[in-house]
């Protein structure tokens, strides 16, 4: 259903975009169809100002405290965190694999960079995902145009900078089309 627009008080600091935070959890081992993926996505909340973001964030469990196979998805309002969304159909994502213990700090640095428009790639960013897995954690940044090499390079460089990743850290770019085939 359609949600009402997000109101902002004049004393709050407006963000460039409004965002929605989603949560999903899948049973390990089970194949996820598109339909069940959609049904697993739960909207936690929305915000359009810095103050509203902190109001929501401060009530959340830190990613490192989430159970295995859980994801948080922070996407611009109007873009569902699914390949099938129109904004994602020609897109892709940067994938950063993190050893255990780093995810909460990296996720916070990533979303602050996204909300503060630190990526400087115009309208290209769709959202970010943090995935808690058994042996490692994964964070991803989704963008609209996988074929735009300048944009994907800039996102990679910004990620390295804001996450303080060593040059050796493994980063991989995958188009959503490739992901669909797997």
């Amino acid at each position: 259903g359609l949600l009402p627009p997000i109101e902002i008080n004049p004393n709050e600091h407006k963000l460039q975009y409004a965002y929605a935070l989603w949560y999903s959890r899948r049973s390990p081992g089970k194949q996820t169809s598109i339909q069940s993926y959609d049904q697993n996505l739960k909207l936690i909340g929305r915000f359009a100002s810095v103050e509203q973001f902190w109001g929501l964030y401060s009530h959340l469990v830190r990613p490192s405290e989430l159970t295995t196979h859980t994801d948080f998805h922070l996407f611009k309002v109007g873009i569902k965190p699914m390949w099938e969304d129109e904004a994602n159909q020609k897109g892709g994502k940067w994938i950063v694999r993190l050893r255990k213990g780093l995810v909460s700090r990296c996720w916070e640095n990533l979303i602050l960079a996204m909300l503060g428009e630190q990526f400087m790639v115009g309208e290209e960013i769709c959202g970010a995902v943090v995935s808690i897995r058994f042996q490692e954690d994964i964070i991803c940044v989704w963008n609209k145009t996988a074929s735009d090499v300048a944009t994907t390079a800039r996102i990679r460089d910004t990620l390295r900078r804001v996450l303080h990743l060593p040059a050796s850290a493994s980063m991989e770019y995958k188009t959503h089309n490739e992901s669909l085939k797997n």
């Binding site: 600091h13 810095v50 103050e51 902190w54 109001g55 401060s58 602050l112 503060g116 428009e117 630190q118």
Partner: peptide, 21 residues
């Protein structure tokens, strides 16, 4: 229009403002 850009430190400072809670 102008893009609304916020540095990390600025965002962190607003974390404890009364309207952020």
């Amino acid at each position: 229009g102008t893009r609304i850009v916020y540095e990390r430190a600025f965002l962190m400072n607003l974390r404890n403002s009364p309207i952020s809670r």
